[in-house]
Design a protein around this nucleic acid. Structure first.
Lengths: 232, 232
DNA sequence: CTCTGTATTTTGATTGATCAAAATGTTGAT
DNA sequence: ATCAACATTTTGATCAATCAAAATACAGAG
């Protein structure tokens, strides 16, 4: 239907809206997200607007149209279902699946996707805790970055459960795996030093099936702590 | 590593060699196989020769180099393992998986591929009976089109087993599915009318698990019969 | 040996996606 | 109100992959 380039533009715009809450994405942010030059974005954006996938207010930013958003949501569904599939069905390492899914999301047909969805039992979230849009194109909204409850903002001493990791960088994900702070893990902030920018916490493993279960300690920066969303 | 265009050129040349036995493929056949114009082939072939993937004797044809063949075999391995995966793991319909695999073969990484291979238990053939190259890049040779034993050349009255379908066209595959002549089925040629170009045979279902098992009759043209390889 | 038909290569152009560098518009500080 | 700093758009080029149509080489018939 669309080239993978087009799909990547749409997905980046959707993701920006989800993360930032802003309805409009500035060209510079898009260039940054896609790792292309600003001029390239201007050119592509004009073409996509032509196709009715987004609206473009010159010098301000872009916004997905209804059909653009629908296409973007389909791509995101593919991405997240594929990630889940790689981890659950193929037992691949958690930290690497994002890049694999990045390539596969453009090659998986709708027919294959629905078979995968079925095989996995219609999962609601992917291995990072990110919500998977359903087949009807509905995406559970996660609340903007501001009101998020994370290891940087949650109550100290209370026990929480890791709900979602807001970063796909392999190095960070490796760190998360090593500390045991994966979605599902139970965690308690032991001490948060705002001045020093350090958060120290106690991790209690998976609780459910599988994981090592043993308790451990994790120390991380405030910025990093802010990427770990907790709940309950 | 290579663009999907390049991968398709290499795969087409390898497949031509396997099917025809000829070591060299004329540009016209390549254009036909890839559904591009002859001029395009000339251009691309020069570029691929530049990269050391094939050797090009002007006005005669192309031949894969060692490294070109290795790359082609990797692509073929991906294609056939993906097909097997789609049928065995995702329970997709036999007849459609070729086109799906056509897209996925360029997006599946080596890491993902080996996980799939493992999951499937290192299968030796794909759902059409085509041999799957192993991880070391060895491809079981199938014998040229001449010496092949097929429903067009096998003994009448003897019972055979369908080994391989030498055609990926969806319409033909649909026909095969409907008649039950899939790899694994037992079959006996009841009558072969060379003059009329018609082969009539009796099909006995899967034998093993799954299939309907009941006997049925299939009537097909001599050309079509020649695409159904039998053994034993 | 010549000619003709077919396969192949050349030529000139197009499309999608990209870049670097120059030009331009906008915003915020003074 | 002016100007500097920065973001955005324009401009002119490039690269990979393709096409249609013209030019060319070759092989077999005579």
């Amino acid at each position: 239907m669309f080239s993978s380039t087009v799909e990547n533009y749409l997905k980046a715009i959707l993701l920006h809206g989800e993360e930032s809450g802003a309805g409009v994405m500035p060209p510079g942010a898009l260039a940054e997200a896609l790792d292309v030059s600003p001029g390239t974005v201007t050119t592509m954006v004009k073409a996509l607007a032509e196709q009715g996938l987004l609206s473009h207010k010159p010098r301000a930013g872009v916004k997905l149209t209804k059909s653009g958003r629908a296409a973007a949501v389909r791509v995101l569904r593919k991405h997240r279902l594929v990630e889940t599939f790689l981890v659950s069905a193929l037992k691949m390492d958690w930290a690497g699946v994002h890049e694999e899914a990045e390539a596969l999301e453009h090659a998986v047909s709708d027919r294959v996707l629905e078979k995968i969805d079925e095989l996995l039992g219609h999962p609601a979230v992917d291995p990072h805790g990110d919500p998977i849009p359903n087949a009807r194109g509905e995406l559970a909204g996660g609340g903007g970055v501001g009101e998020r409850l994370t290891l940087a903002s949650c109550d100290v001493k209370t026990q929480w459960r890791v709900a979602r990791i807001h970063d796909q960088a392999p190095a960070f994900l490796d760190f998360i795996r090593d500390t045991g702070l994966k979605p599902g893990a139970r965690v308690r902030v032991v001490r948060r030093d705002e001045a020093g920018g350090v958060v120290r916490c106690e991790v209690k493993g998976e609780g459910g099936a599988g994981g090592a279960g043993g308790a451990g300690e994790a120390v991380l920066g405030l910025g990093e702590a802010g990427k770990i969303e907790v709940r309950k």
